[in-house]
Design a protein around this nucleic acid. Structure first.
Ligand SMILES: NC(=O)c1ccc[n+]([C@@H]2O[C@H](COP(=O)([O-])OP(=O)(O)OC[C@H]3O[C@@H](n4cnc5c(N)ncnc54)[C@H](O)[C@@H]3O)[C@@H](O)[C@H]2O)c1
Ligand SMILES: NC(=O)c1ccc[n+]([C@@H]2O[C@H](COP(=O)([O-])OP(=O)(O)OC[C@H]3O[C@@H](n4cnc5c(N)ncnc54)[C@H](O)[C@@H]3O)[C@@H](O)[C@H]2O)c1
Lengths: 203, 203
DNA sequence: TCGTACTTGAGCTCACATTCACAAACCGGC
DNA sequence: GCCGGTTTGTGAATGTGAGCTCAAGTACGA
């Protein structure tokens, strides 16, 4: 094992591996890169290379210990501990996200939700009470360092600024706007319409 | 101008340029690659190279004619004509997508919605009536060749198969499953939880 | 103990993507 | 018509990732 910076593309694939391995861990104990590759449709040497970035622990002739691998990937992704996240903007998309149980699989807990619409404040979705946006600053005290932005485009930047001020370290942004934030804060943007816009090119 | 295959990475950036340019077209007539680069945070020679793949039409000393550029990018992305899309799965996420007006910007029209839940069939969201999933085969006749999958994971593959059979050529998939489809059908998957899972790595 | 079948880990090569650097093109003013 | 200031378009250089290959490690049965 050598010290390597992990390539971004590998970081992008790690959650894919993790999801597949979590599924497989119910059925098997070991798996070869070849079998895993077939299961999630990637190249097998790609997998071995990715794993090699954070240490070699496969056994030649046998493969990888699935549970050990899961632990290792979680550790690399910093998912060994559960993370709390806050949702800002409990509109159409925000409500869907609040209702979605699939984040638990990776150890996420959407522990708070905020909106600025008095009609929505106080309502509960999936056991999370929607709070007034002015309470954002409680996030630090509540040890919530991730946030999901689902407010309209024009409110996105100011929301991001407020989140940064509240000590948030990572933002998942659904608004179709390039949000600027200090370098120490990581922003990942999912622009759904833009993905759709890519589709006609291929047909 | 020479004949080039357009790299995938460029295709991924074209909608970004398009969005920025649509915004800028309200304010200016021309823009240099440098200014556009600042606006959307990419490298300026990247932009020039990307544009060069589909023909040179900038003016040295002046920059690019924004409206011409928009036309050209739309043409490359096959967005010059408006596209109809169908939504399958009018649950939490699907309803949010149906209600979202932002797809029009790229010329998309969500013209149909399907579900298999009798309670949902017949309801209307944003002037689109939810139809029974068994009517999927009408898509071809209605000239709908794009689809958005927002059904639960376990129904995703069968939904995709049915869509392919109904003549759909491109699929935007929200289920956390790697869908397999014939090569002639392009599938783009957005796995929201997976994007979130990537966030803690960077913090 | 040995042979066979299997699998890892890593070096290597090829392909693709990004960035640099600069000649050539253009504008506007004088 | 020419000059100074800009900006394009593109080859060349650099950076990054994907996939092939194979020596070496392991399991297991004979
Ligand atoms: N719904 C979709 O399918 C979809 C698709 C692509 C992108 N998006 C983007 O996601 C975001 C949300 O979309 P949506 O459909 O849920 O919109 P929405 O209008 O349904 O919800 C927005 C919510 O944000 C709240 N809000 C507005 N300003 C706020 C502020 N300053 N602080 C806190 N809360 C505020 C509103 O009260 C509302 O509840 C938008 O930026 C949209 O562009 C949505
Ligand atoms: N809601 C989110 O924030 C979110 C986040 C990430 C991923 N996803 C994924 O998006 C998909 C939809 O999520 P959701 O939260 O809207 O779920 P949901 O349960 O609210 O909606 C699913 C809808 O699909 C319909 N359906 C089920 N089987 C069907 C079939 N065979 N044919 C047609 N319709 C069928 C159901 O009646 C329901 O209306 C899921 O795959 C989920 O994993 C959702």
């Amino acid at each position: 094992m050598k010290y390597h910076r992990i390539p971004d593309e590998t970081v992008r694939r790690l959650p894919v591996y993790l999801r597949g391995l979590l599924f497989l861990s119910d059925h098997k104990q070991n798996i070869s890169s070849r079998n895993l590759a077939d299961f999630i449709s990637v190249n097998d040497s790609q997998i071995r290379k990715d794993f090699s970035y954070f240490g070699a622990f496969g056994t030649p002739g046998v493969g990888y210990d699935i549970r050990k691998l899961i632990r290792q990937i979680k550790k690399m992704l910093n998912l060994s501990v559960s993370h709390k996240a806050a949702l800002v903007g409990a509109g159409n998309l925000g409500s869907a996200i609040l209702a979605y149980p699939g984040f638990r699989m990776y150890g996420f807990d959407i522990a708070a939700a905020f909106d600025n619409d008095p009609k929505k404040i106080g309502r509960e979705i999936n056991n999370v009470r929607i709070e007034d946006i002015s309470s954002l600053r409680t996030l630090e005290r509540r040890k919530i360092s991730l946030a999901i932005i689902a407010v309209p485009r024009d409110a996105a930047q100011q929301t991001a600024d407020a989140l940064v001020k509240a000590g948030v370290k990572g933002i998942l942004n659904f608004s179709p706007l390039r949000i600027t934030a200090p370098k120490k804060v990581k922003v990942i943007t999912i622009d759904i319409a833009m993905e759709l816009a890519r589709l006609p090119y291929y047909i």
